Simulated scan of single mutants.
Amino acid sequence: MSGQFSFGFSGDDIEDDGQSNSAGPQVSASTQPQASASAFPVPGKPLLPATSHDLHHMLSQLPSKIAYGILDIDLDGAGNIQLPRRELWDVRVQLMAEDDGGDTEPGLGNHDVKTGVYEGGFKSWESSVDLVKVLSLSKSFLSDIDTVPRLIELGCGTALPSLALFQWSLSLRAPEKSSALSIVLADYNPTVLQLVTLPNFVLSWALHQRAGSPLLENAFSSEGELDLTPEVLKAFDEFLTARKISLSFFSGAWSTEFIRLLNSDKTPKIGNNSGQRTIILGAETIYSPFALSAFTQTIFSLLEEEKAQGNAAEALVGAKKLYFGVGGSLDDFVTKTREMGANVEELREEAEGVRRGVVRCSLP
């Protein structure tokens, strides 16, 4: 069973004007997955195990140079935000240079998803842009000096929502007075984390700090490229430490072990912080009933853990109203979470083109 899905998009990615190039919410499946307790069932193929990844090791594995483009997102008339993304052609060049399966790397071919192999992380999906727009309305929480903000993006891929929050935090949080900020980035595929997620954070930092740093100004030696010298990577690491920002990376299938790893990754409270506020993010993570069930169980476990510790927590989920051909839908997610006892609030709806929405889930 191949379990390969094509989501009906006319191109590989969201266009750089922040708009989707999708012609409609069509999903085709060459073979329908069979029922299973796991999120991404492939008979005879084990799911990737839950794994944590060390930031310093990941930084050491980056290439000497990366190429990038800018995604300009209009925040519904309230300004805009420009988010850098590593170019996919540059990822292909790196893989071919390393002779590490550049021609066959999952996710760099013609399929948006290959069930149990690759879960779409190299591409930026429309609902991730919807989440950025929703988050822009409440980003002021990043500057609260009395609370440790913790962001968890499940199925992060190119991590547009987390990148936006990271970029806003650089402007909103006072360097000397801010509490700690924890950003947890999780994707099924470790290659996605290494090849696009981390590079996008380095790019976002470098572009934001470029004007006041001769080191970074020199690193942008060519248009659309950033030199990742040892000095640049060291400066990035030192900046995170100075600003009390932690980046944590996790890969593998949603599972009990996955939840345990995330719950063990806690930012220590600093100063007189009274508590922690956790925001769980997920975009396009419920494209099938299997993914919907596992994702819902995961966010409930994380919300329950935070509630047990007396921390405020909520989940913001963006998805299409219906994924034709494989059965997932935002409405099913809302129904399921309400049946499980969650409070669900609809925050945003896109009625034109591909019908999508963003909802907030919390425990009473």
Rank of each mutant, 00 (worst) to 15 (best):
L195D: 14
G155F: 06
S288V: 03
L88Y: 06
V232K: 09
G318R: 05
P190Y: 01
A294H: 06
E15G: 15
G107M: 02
M96I: 15
S60C: 03
L59E: 09
V232S: 03
K234C: 10
T104I: 13
S274L: 15
C361W: 12
S213G: 05
S178M: 11
L261T: 00
R360C: 10
G121F: 08
K244W: 12
L363H: 13
Q297I: 09
S362R: 12
G318Y: 00
S204M: 06
F300S: 10
V317H: 04
I81L: 09
S64I: 06
K269E: 15
T278H: 05
Q194S: 10
L59A: 01
Y323L: 02
L261A: 09
E349I: 10
L347D: 05
Y68S: 06
L322Y: 10
A23K: 14
P149V: 04
S10E: 15
S30D: 13
L185V: 07
A29Y: 01
A174T: 14
R86T: 04
S171Q: 14
A186Q: 09
T147D: 11
F166N: 04
S255V: 10
P25F: 09
S6C: 11
E306H: 08
H57P: 02
R243P: 02
F295L: 08
R150Y: 07
T298E: 04
A351F: 14
T104Q: 11
L363S: 09
A312G: 13
F201K: 01
A319Y: 02
S30G: 14
I66T: 05
F258M: 00
G8V: 03
S127Y: 00
S127C: 10
V359F: 09
M96G: 08
P199G: 09
I66V: 14
L59F: 07
S329T: 01
C361I: 15
E345D: 13
F324K: 12
R356G: 06
S264V: 03
I14S: 07
S301V: 06
S255N: 07
Q194F: 01
I183E: 07
P214H: 04
V93C: 13
L228P: 02
S28Q: 14
I299L: 14
F40P: 00
A23F: 12
S60E: 11
S248E: 13
T197H: 02
S221E: 10
F300N: 12
S38K: 11
P84A: 00
E223P: 07
L48G: 01
T51H: 07
P41F: 06
E225Y: 13
L47A: 15
E352D: 14
F40K: 08
P106D: 03
S140G: 10
I14C: 10
K320D: 03
G212F: 05
P106T: 04
E223L: 11
L165Q: 02
G271T: 08
M58S: 08
N263R: 13
V202T: 02
A235T: 00
S213I: 07
R360K: 12
A206K: 03
Q297L: 11
L228Q: 07
G102R: 08
R260S: 15
D12R: 14
F249S: 04
V196C: 14
S127M: 11
D112T: 03
I183T: 03
V113Q: 05
E306N: 13
